[in-house]
Each structure stands twice: as C-alpha cells, then as structure tokens.
Design a protein around this nucleic acid. Structure first.
Lengths: 232, 232
DNA sequence: ACATCCAGGTGTACGGCGTACACCTCTGCG
DNA sequence: CGCAGAGGTGTACGCCGTACACCTGGATGT
C-alpha cells in the first residue's frame, strides 16, 4: 500500500539526506515553517521516521548549521592575514545570503558543534598566523563576533512598505516628523530606490565597510603592540 | 466562586500590568518558558483574558521590548559625542544584563516599535550632534549594529561544563588537541577561574573594548572627513 | 428606577507542534 | 531456517497560540 508510486522503492534515509532536505526546505519556506512533520512529508515519510536519524529538532538544527558552515570556502593561502580573513568572511557571507535563515539559527544554538568549532578555530589560527598575540586575538575575536559568520544584525528589518504610494508618502512624512534623524540617514541611503529605511541601502557595502573598519582597527592595535594589561 | 481568596477583588488588568508581569516572568523563568497560559496563570486570570489587552503574543513581545528599552537612561548632556554615546550604550548594556532574554527578543522583532525607533533616533542624533555627516552616521550605525543595544553575540554561549573535575580535564585535553587555537585563547582568558571557554573571560571588558574600538574608528573617519564616495 | 451597553473576564474547542512508545517489516547473516 | 536489528509506522500525549461565543457587573442615559 505504502509502496512508491513510481514502483522503485524510496532509497533509505540517512542523517545526511535528512539534513540536506531540511536545509533545502528552510531555504524554500523559511525556518519558521520548518517542522518535523513538514520535513517528513517532504521526504515521503512519517514524522517519527526522522527520529531514527536525528535525536530531536535541536540536533536537526545543529546539523543544518553544520551543512551551511561546510559551504564556507577554506582559507586562501599565500596572502597576509588581513586579506585572507577578509576573503573568508566574505565567503561566509555569500553562504549566509543563500541561506537567510541560517544566521538566526547559528545564533540560537546553545552549544557549538565540532564543525562550528573547527571554523572558529581556523579563524583564530589566521590571526595567530598573522602574528597576533594570544591576548589580542582573544579580544579581537569578541569584537568580530557574529560578523565572523558573515552577517550583521539588521538595523531595520526591511519593512515591506504599503504599496499605495499616497499612504507611503504619508508614512514618510510622519517618519520625518517623529524620527528626524532616522529619516535623514534613511533618505541619504535611499535615493536610488523609492523606499524607506532598510531598503535602498547597499547591504554588501555596509558589511564590507564594517569588516574593514574592524580589521583596520585590529591591525592598528597589533602594530602598536597592544596588550590588555598595557592600554592607554 | 471565582472571587479573590483575599476578599479584595483583583484590580483589573491593563496593558501595562500585563507587560510588566510578562517581563518579570521572563526574567524569572526564561523567555522560552513564557507562554500566554503561563503568564495568565501568574496574573490569576484565564489565558484568553490577556487578549483583551494585547493583540497576540507577537505584540506582547513588542511591548516587553518597549518596557526594557524604556529602562535605558536618557542621554547625558554636556559631554562630547563619544563619551555620551559610550555612556548611553553602557546603560543599555546594564539594562540588558538585568533582562538576559531581551537581546534575543529585540533581534527577533520583525518591525521596530515607536519606542525602539525613538531610541535609535536619539542615538543617530547623538552622532549628528557630534558633527558627523549624514553619510558617515549612516554607515557607522550599521557598524554599531546590535551593540547599540548593549549586547554582542556571545562567541561561546557559556557551556555549563561537567562537574566531575576528571571529566573536565579530559575535555580540556581533547579541546586542546582538536581546536588548539581556541584552547589557547581560552586558556589565556580563563586563568582566573577553573573553566573552559566562555567563562572566566570578563564580558564587560570585552564589550567595552569592542565599543571603544568602534568609537575610535568612527572618530578617526570623522576627523579625516570620510565620505562614502571618496574612500581609499 | 430601569434599560442598555460594553469593557473585561470566561469556557470550550481547534489545529499545530515535538516526541514517547509500542509495533511492524524488511534485509542480511549465522 | 531463524533471528536480530535497522528503518519505518501509528497512535497518543501534553503543550502551544488563539478563534469564537458567552457571561457579568458597573457605568450611563433617560
């Protein structure tokens, strides 16, 4: 009865296929609509079947993060630390843009998986290879924070904006009245598109700007031999 | 029958009391254990009663954020922009330390509330008052990101660590083997307490270090008249 | 004084979630 | 041939957010 319609028996599941299907489904329908039941259906299987391959939903999410982190390019060799780290982080960013749900999930994991630790370890290693002291590297990693994964907390989570242009104009006017400073910087960034905050501002530029500002700051501290015990 | 046990009739609910109770409950039991049913019980009321005061759980969370943001000190007057912003952000950090769930919730809101916009607006205003161009202020706000709320994504979400010291030693050894770089910086930071990554490192120091590095970077750009169209 | 209204609180019910637990059904191996 | 164990099933439980109809007591208008 439960035979495949196509005659061929469905290839048996395994952890990897489950994780890849979960990633694909999250890409498709968003992480908030990813449920065990959902995913099972996608795989042509009953919900409880998944539990033969992942312990529970938390581990499923862990595994999904691992898949995503696995897509980040390995470090390039033969350049200075700054270029190498920059490149790696931008690669991470590329991955996260393909899996928009991933940043949230990464942040939400209570314990890092070995794959995640590997990535972190390798980033730390890149600073060390660049001659950074253990001390400075440590603090610098904290400053880098989630940017090491290629994302920044969105300032304005991209409001959809009412389609009605008259409404839109009214909203803009109200914004300008109530939040003049925000309106000002939003205007400056949005001249290219008819939208308010969040849109019309080049996320990639913002991200690279931030990363470069950080890396420059790190470099400066490094060059002046900064130590946590000997600061200004 | 449903009279108060103490004889006195329960004071009628209102939006504010609901929000404050929700904040207190989240402080107590954690945000993941805050449910409408839960909260209703705490208030001595049936779950559906809450919906007379908040539209749904999302709006409840919005309101909780508003309460928390309302606890942030207003800007101090009469100092330079750098000191003023630093102080304000550190005040925000103080608030978020009292409500550890709040950072997650702030990040999760799809639309900023007026209260949130007010806060952002005022931070933007502080840069502008410091003479920053609209352009630079805009980018700088992006770099600041969630740090403006006084939090940073935790690098290592504070693993509880096995109590058994022998187990602990074994874990440390394994860490050092598999993730030598991480182990190294963790060691450097953890000499004061017998714990591995996450603990034993002074979060407050890390945060202030990051904020100062950012503010210094901003200042430098400002002083050299940086513009997005005229960069190196 | 009486009718009316309605803000605030109740009770029931629905559909969705994660997942525990007992079961069935193949496949490969002795 | 028998049996074990991996992989898949079915049922059920307790939680969640919340729609909807209902009740109730005090303020209000006449």
């Amino acid at each position: 009865m439960v035979q495949q319609v196509d005659g061929a028996r469905r290839a048996p599941l395994n952890r990897d296929r489950v994780l890849r299907a979960a990633v694909a489904l999250a890409d498709d329908v968003g992480i908030e609509s990813l449920s065990m039941r959902n995913l099972a259906q996608e795989l042509g299987v009953v919900p409880m079947a998944l539990y033969k391959h992942v312990a529970n939903k938390e581990q499923l999410l862990d595994g999904m993060v691992d898949v995503v982190v696995g897509e980040i390019d390995p470090p390039v060799r033969g350049t200075d630390w700054k270029a190498a780290i920059r490149q790696r982080i931008l690669s991470a960013r590329g991955v996260l843009l393909r899996h928009p749900w991933a940043s949230r999930v990464i942040e939400s994991r209570p314990q890092p998986t070995p794959v995640v630790l590997d990535y972190m370890n390798s980033i730390v290693g890149m600073f060390r290879a660049g001659g950074f002291s253990v001390d400075l590297t440590h603090h610098v990693m904290h400053v880098l924070g989630s940017r090491m994964w290629g994302f920044t907390q969105e300032l304005f989570p991209a409001s959809p904006l009412p389609a009605d242009p008259q409404m839109q104009a009214a909203m803009l006017r109200e914004m300008a009245g109530r939040y003049p400073h925000i309106a000002e910087i939003a205007m400056a960034a949005a001249h290219d598109e008819g939208s308010v905050v969040g849109h019309g501002c080049d996320d990639q530029f913002e991200f690279e700007f931030a990363v470069d500002l950080l890396l420059d700051g790190f470099e400066r501290l490094h060059q002046q031999g900064w130590t946590s015990t000997n600061q200004a």
